[in-house]
Design a protein around this nucleic acid. Structure first.
Lengths: 231, 231
DNA sequence: GGAAGAAACTTGTATATACAAGTCCGTTTG
DNA sequence: CAAACGGACTTGTATATACAAGTTTCTTCC
C-alpha cells in the first residue's frame, strides 16, 4: 500500500531518529532540502514537519531550522479510562450498585473545591462498580446542580454518571491526582479488601461551561487493580 | 494581537462546542461553508479542521463531513515526569544516593521481562532520590547491557539513569503500570515512611533499537507523594 | 579584529487550483 | 417498491507561488 507523500516523509524522519542517526538537538534537513530529496512541494514537507512537531518528535525555530526534540523519556503518559469503558474493553460484564443519590449541603472545604458558596447544596452520588460481580471501584462524586440540574433523576444502574455528564456538560478542563491511600473501614469492606491492603485513588475535578462541574474520588483495591498501558 | 486565520477558525469551532451549541455527533459546517464564512482558502480551513481532529475535538469522515467528536470525558491523561525534572520544576534541590550499581545474573522471571536468555547478566542500579534532603523515590532498575554497555561506568550522583539512557538509547516504546502496594521493610525505612503507610509504585518497561532496554520500579511514599496534573 | 549591514537561508502563513476518493440524495427503471 | 445510477457535495492529498518574519552567514568598513 502506497503511503501519501507527507506520511513517507514523517516515517523517514522517525526512522532516522529511532536508529540513532539523529539525536536530540541535531538539525534535520531544511524544508527546501527535503523538497529536493523527495521531489514534492514545500507545503507537503511543511505538513510532515508540523505534524511531527505537534507529536513532540521535532521542534522548530523560525529562521533557524528544525531540530530533533528532547525526547520525552522522562514523561510517561498514562491514559485512565472510565471503569465501565475499561471493563467493557476486557469483554467483561460491568454493573453498578447505587449506594446513595441525593442532594445535600456541602461542607465548607468541598464548597471551595466545587466553586460554590458556603452552605450551598450539591448532588452526591455513591456507587459501587463491579466487574463480573467482583467489586472493583467505589465512586464518590459531588456534582454542581447548576451544571446538571437533573442529575438526581437519573438511573445510575443503567447509565454511569460519566456517561450522563458527557451528554449534558461538555468537558473543558480536568485536574487530577493519583494517590496510594489507606481506605476507611467502610470502603475497605465495600471493595472486599484485605486488612492492611492499600487503595489506589484517583481524584478528579472537571470544569464545564466555565464552572466546576464535578469532583470525584475513585477508590480501587490495591491488590486487584492497577492503571496500565503502553505507547 | 491578531491571530492567524487558521487559529481563528479553530477558536470559533471550539467556542461553539464549549458553549454547548454543537454536541457530540453534530456535523460542523463543511470546508466549503467555512471558506465562504471566513473568506479564506480551503487549505486554511482544512488545516484548522485537521488540527482539531488530531486534538480529538473533531472527527472526520471522507465524503460525509466533519463531526464533533465523542468527548474523552472518561479518559484522563496523566503525565508523569522523571523525578529529577519534577523536583527541578518545583524549584527544589534534587540529589541521588547510589545504593547499588553492578552487573549480575538476573532471575528467570526478570530475564523474561528483559527479553534475555536464562542465566544472562544485566546491570542493576538502586538509587534513593531526595528532594531538599527528604527521601522521595527509590529507583530500582535493571538495564539490558546490549543497549547500554557502559551503564555501570556512569556516576549516577551527577546524572540520572534516565538522562543517561536518553542519550544512548532512543526510546521506541513504553509499557507502564501504576499500583498501590505495601513496601518491604527496607524500602519503608529508605523512604522514611510510617508503619502501615502504602507506596505509590510506577513500574515501567522501555524498548529501544527493537529490544527491551530497561525495566524499573519507582517507589514513592504514599503520604508525601502523588501524581498530579491538569489539562 | 570587530561591528554593521546586506544577502542568503530558514520557517510561518496563505492562496487558487486540481484531481482522487468517499458519501449522500434524487431520479429513473424494472 | 426496490435497486441502480448519476449528480452534488464532502474530505484527502497535492502543487506552484507568494509574502512575512526570523536567523545565520558573509562582506565591507573602520
Amino acid at each position: 500500500m502506497n503511503l501519501p507523500a507527507y506520511r513517507q516523509i514523517k516515517d523517514f524522519i522517525q526512522r532516522h531518529i529511532s536508529a540513532g542517526h539523529w539525536r536530540e538537538g541535531d538539525r534535520v534537513p531544511s524544508e527546501h532540502a527535503l523538497t529536493r530529496e523527495f521531489g514534492v512541494s514545500r507545503m507537503t514537507v511543511n505538513r510532515a514537519l508540523r505534524e511531527l512537531t505537534a507529536e513532540h518528535v521535532l521542534t522548530r525555530v523560525k529562521g533557524a531550522g528544525t531540530y530533533v526534540a528532547r525526547p520525552r523519556y522522562e514523561s510517561t503518559l498514562v491514559e485512565i479510562k472510565s471503569i465501565a469503558a475499561e471493563i467493557a474493553g476486557r469483554g467483561h460484564e460491568h454493573a453498578s450498585d447505587v449506594l446513595a443519590l441525593d442532594r445535600c449541603q456541602v461542607h465548607p472545604a468541598l464548597a471551595v473545591e466545587l466553586g460554590l458558596r458556603r452552605g450551598a447544596q450539591a448532588f452526591h452520588s455513591l456507587l459501587l462498580h463491579r466487574e463480573k460481580g467482583m467489586p472493583i471501584q467505589v465512586e464518590d462524586r459531588w456534582v454542581n446542580p447548576a451544571i446538571a440540574p437533573e442529575y438526581d433523576l437519573q438511573d445510575f444502574r443503567r447509565i454511569t454518571p460519566n456517561e450522563y455528564l458527557m451528554r449534558v456538560a461538555p468537558l473543558q478542563k480536568v485536574e487530577y491526582r493519583i494517590e496510594a491511600q489507606v481506605p476507611n473501614a467502610i470502603t475497605r469492606r465495600r471493595l472486599a479488601m484485605a486488612a492492611g491492603e492499600p487503595c489506589l485513588l484517583l481524584h478528579r475535578r472537571t470544569w464545564s461551561q466555565g464552572r466546576v462541574a464535578s469532583v470525584v474520588d475513585l477508590w480501587h483495591p490495591g491488590q486487584r487493580y492497577q492503571f496500565t498501558g503502553h505507547f
